[in-house]
């Protein structure tokens, strides 16, 4: 058992346990903070797979952006001073059965399929290759993504705007 394997199992344990807390916790703030550890663990998985730039991007976008957005959403939509915060679940038992069957099927497919693999290589850094590929082969996608992000942010600001002046 090498160091790589030990690190993988530790990170995978962290991801699965914190994701289970996200899914099962009654307290929504605790679920959000547990999601932080899921994102950190997934970033570690990316780095274990030799994708250093994607790992750092995951840290910056998910931990620094999306998680903060989620926390803002929680704090803006929960009535802090009221005791009754509705967070109960619906149809727990049938959902567990169906999702369990689905997960077993998925894991069966993943294990039984004879994947064609090559020897993995660990590049020193992926940034140069990533930038070259992104701007040479995928430049149209790059531009479209920029426009999509711009439109989505303008749309979000328009939707969330408090239009008291029009009334």
């Amino acid at each position: 058992m090498e160091l790589y394997d030990i690190i993988f199992y530790l990170v995978a344990l962290m991801v699965v346990v914190s994701a289970a807390i996200v899914v099962g916790s009654k307290n929504i703030v605790r679920a959000a903070y547990s999601l932080l550890f899921t994102f950190l663990g997934v970033a570690g998985i990316y780095i274990l797979l030799g994708a250093d730039f994607i790992g750092v991007t995951q840290l910056m976008v998910y931990v620094g952006g999306i998680l903060i957005l989620l926390l803002f959403g929680i704090m803006l939509t929960n009535k802090v001073y009221s005791v009754d915060i509705r967070r109960e679940n619906a149809y727990i038992i049938p959902s567990i059965v169906i999702v369990g069957i689905f997960a077993a099927f998925l894991i069966f497919v993943m294990t039984e399929t004879n994947w064609v693999t090559a020897d993995p290589t660990f590049p020193n850094t992926t940034v140069f290759e990533l930038g070259k590929t992104l701007l040479v082969h995928y430049s149209i996608i790059f531009e479209i993504l920029a426009i999509v992000l711009l439109i989505a942010l303008i749309g979000a600001a328009t939707l969330a705007r408090n239009d008291n002046k029009e009334r």
């Binding site: 090498e2 790589y4 394997d5 993988f8 199992y9 995978a12 991801v15 699965v16 994701a19 289970a20 996200v22 899914v23 929504i28 679920a31 959000a32 899921t38 997934v42 998985i45 797979l49 989620l70 959403g73 929680i74 939509t77 509705r86 967070r87 109960e88 679940n89 619906a90 149809y91 727990i92 959902s95 567990i96 169906i98 999702v99 369990g100 689905f102 997960a103 998925l106 894991i107 993943m110 294990t111 994947w115 693999t117």
Partner: peptide, 30 residues
């Protein structure tokens, strides 16, 4: 030894947990 299958199983577990959260939770943020 950790190979492709380990990562695929990890992602399958994560996917199932996410689907469970989507199906079960009532709160939109959840």
């Amino acid at each position: 030894h950790v190979g492709l299958t380990h990562f695929l199983i990890l992602s399958a577990i994560l996917f199932s947990l996410g689907i469970y959260a989507i199906v079960v939770r009532k709160n939109a943020i959840m």
